[in-house]
């Protein structure tokens, strides 16, 4: 149970970074932390205490294997996270070229 709560607090750190930080780069780091927390959570769901890798071998007993599907799924999710991060950083670089700052309180031409 404690490990899930730790994972949740990890996610909250990322969320705090997204919501409270003014610097665009820090916000992006917040997104990355939150993404990792969700990926970790997906892995933790499939983890078993004292579990072993899900590899079949002729003489080993098939007991207490870790579920392999979330690991494959999270691999895809990490790649997607990479693409998102890349595009966020590319946008941040272009924003710095145009506005000359990373401070979001000064990048306010549009008002939702």
């Amino acid at each position: 149970m404690a490990i899930y709560l730790l994972c949740l607090s990890f996610f909250s750190v990322g969320l705090y970074g997204i919501l409270r930080k003014r610097n665009i780069i820090k916000i992006i780091i917040g997104v990355i932390i939150a993404e990792y927390a969700v990926n970790l959570f997906f892995i933790l769901i499939a983890y078993r205490i004292e579990g072993r890798a899900p590899i079949y071998s002729p003489n080993a007993e098939i007991t207490n294997m870790v579920d392999a599907l979330p690991q494959a799924v999270v691999l895809t999710s990490i790649v997607i996270g990479l693409a998102t991060t890349v595009i966020l950083i590319a946008l941040a670089m272009r924003i710095f070229e145009k506005y000359g700052t990373f401070d979001i309180t000064k990048i306010r031409d549009l008002r939702g």
Partner: peptide
């Protein structure tokens, strides 16, 4: 300027 700001907000 505007496109980039909007895109960043949207992406986030």
């Amino acid at each position: 300027r505007h496109e980039l700001e909007a895109a960043f907000k949207y992406a986030l």
